[in-house]
Design a protein around this nucleic acid. Structure first.
Lengths: 341, 341
DNA sequence: CAGTTTTTGAGGTACGTAAATCAGAAAATC
DNA sequence: GATTTTCTGATTTACGTACCTCAAAAACTG
């Protein structure tokens, strides 16, 4: 039978109240007594029943998720997952609200963070945009004791507690590895399409990609990156243009969103002249394109994992617990047409 | 504020006892009253506080995991995960024990299952070996109301409630896809190394692999499968021999265990003559080989996910709940050297 | 309508922990 | 040794649900 606080009290020869004081770090216990209790705890192998503790505490955590009001499938996926978390919030004693901000707008993001700080939630998660205002706003959040996590896109150097997202450098490397190997020994050019170089995750992916291409696949020449602001129609145009301009393009790496446009452009090309395509995020579009053979591989970050990890971390931070890094690492999933979930 | 049973009672104009009867499907409630209560439940958006319910029930689930006493890294990983679950068992109100059986031994497995049945646990998970005895034993378990899940290797056609493992057919297809694409347009032979064709998961992987090779990569000739009983030293010998015999082997698919031997054999070969290697399960060996470039890709099934999924399903089945298929699907992870976790 | 059965209400106890109060004991201080 | 301060014990209430008992009310029987 699992030991309870009562067992500890009995075993240590103290009262329930004292056990409670030790367990919850409350003052008013002599050193020797505290040790006796701790001794009993470890010898009985007591572990706190978290469910019962939460029930007794009646504590609820309040969190805010700041998301760009941005309509690409991936962000919609993130929002869906946050909403799913909200619908589960009853069972998990969390109260989560979503705050929308314009995308790629550091002042607006900083502003939103400051407004949230006024409500004193237990934690805030946000998709970072780089900017001094944002750094400063994070500092203010931490100052008043609010836990802060970045989501999808990080803000290194800031005081955020945690980043819930993938290693984008590694993602870029992985993409290069796949494209390079799929290309076999062939020679040719590789086109890279990004959303915006102002976003850190895109920059990092590009860095990783270019690095591996240079190291391992010198016969593949990477063209200068094209930015299409994650806009499908713009992406379609840009891709069509570059494919026409350089007939020896044998691969395309789409490291941002707007894949609908890319798929559209690639479909226009004769099947045997189509480039290899590696894209990010498994969405309806990329899934269908994988199945159809228009995209060769998709790198994915699981939005659900990211959101749940962020919540878990914020909860832990709110209670002053350390993050278990291994548990919170978000994996870079590779999907081919045969292993789609 | 989250509604409680009290709120429902008040809102429906009935007593707590009646709400309780409705919630827990106990008899003694008139149809109209039951409807009034259900109406209140849905209009208030009541959701049962599972933590409090479990606390009140004080129910503990008892499960048995039957694992082959087999020392390959993957099985050790599975065992570690079960043990991790055992160490968490206090918090999760489960009591789990591990039963070891000799590998690939259907009578012994059936025997173990029967012995377990005598203790009447709530559920049993086991790594299936094919055999009529096993089918019969599963039937007996189900007959007395014990939930049954297969782990890693399935037993289709039996009365098991659930299979916690990957789609091995898809895994084989994925391996073929990777190997075929990595080979570029080259021509040559592909060697396949399995543990034993008597194990269902190995057979299925092979089928999927051969199918895709035939469909999509007709220039790659798949050699007859070699069986090395997941034994590293045997595997090393077999691989060395076949590589010597067929100098035009450009790829190797290791669909079972014993990868240590394969890595050893491949390392002996001159770097530029080494075949492409795709193997299963991310272990210390395969991880190091990936990093070193001796293995090109590793397909992995997450042992932790599988074990936790099995426990979740057994718990659900013990309570008569249906399985949420999407949630319990185990993914086929692809790891290259750049996206290793 | 009396008797029976079914339905409902009221209330309590329990699960394991948190948190509070208050009184008394022990230790430290002067 | 008296006083203050610091500890400790005993006890209670609460969290939200499950499950039990007993009695009363309502609905059916014949």
């Amino acid at each position: 039978m699992k030991p309870t606080v009562h067992d500890i009290a009995r075993s240590a020869g103290v009262s329930l109240a004292t056990v409670d004081r030790v367990l919850n770090g409350r003052p008013g216990v002599r050193h020797v007594t505290r040790e006796r209790v701790e001794q009993a705890i470890s010898s009985l192998g007591y572990v706190r029943d978290v469910a019962a503790a939460n029930l007794a505490k009646g504590r609820t955590y309040s969190f805010a998720f700041v998301l760009p009001n941005y309509d690409n499938s991936f962000m919609i996926g993130i929002r869906d997952e946050v909403e799913a978390a909200i619908s589960r919030s009853g069972a998990e004693r969390t109260q989560i609200r979503i705050v929308e901000v314009p995308p790629f707008d550091a002042p607006a993001l900083a502003d939103a963070l400051d407004r949230i700080a006024a409500d004193m939630p237990d934690g805030v998660a946000f998709v970072a945009v780089e900017g001094d205002e944002v750094h400063a706003a994070v500092g203010r959040l931490k100052e008043v004791g609010i836990a802060v996590a970045t989501l999808v896109s990080d803000l290194p150097g800031s005081e955020r507690d945690h980043f819930a997202g993938i290693d984008n450098h590694a993602a870029g490397r992985t993409a290069a590895n796949l494209l390079g190997r799929f290309a076999g020994g062939r020679e040719g050019r590789i086109a890279v399409l990004a959303g915006s170089m102002l976003v850190r995750d895109h920059r990092e992916r590009l860095e990783g990609f270019v690095a591996v291409m240079g190291e391992s696949f010198p016969r593949l020449a990477v063209l200068p990156v094209m930015e299409a602001r994650d806009d499908p129609s713009l992406a379609a145009d840009v891709v069509s243009a570059v494919l026409q301009r350089y007939p020896d393009i044998i691969g395309l790496y789409s490291l941002g969103a707007g894949n609908r446009g890319i798929v559209h452009a690639v479909r226009e090309i004769a099947p045997d002249a189509r480039p290899l395509v590696v894209a990010h995020e498994l969405t309806r579009t990329t899934r269908a394109a994988l199945a159809e053979g228009l995209i060769d591989a998709v790198l994915n970050q699981d939005a659900g994992h990211e959101v749940r990890s962020a919540i878990r971390v914020l909860k832990g931070k709110a209670d002053g617990l350390p993050v278990i890094a291994a548990q919170e690492r978000i994996r870079i999933d590779i999907f081919l047409k045969d292993n789609m979930p």
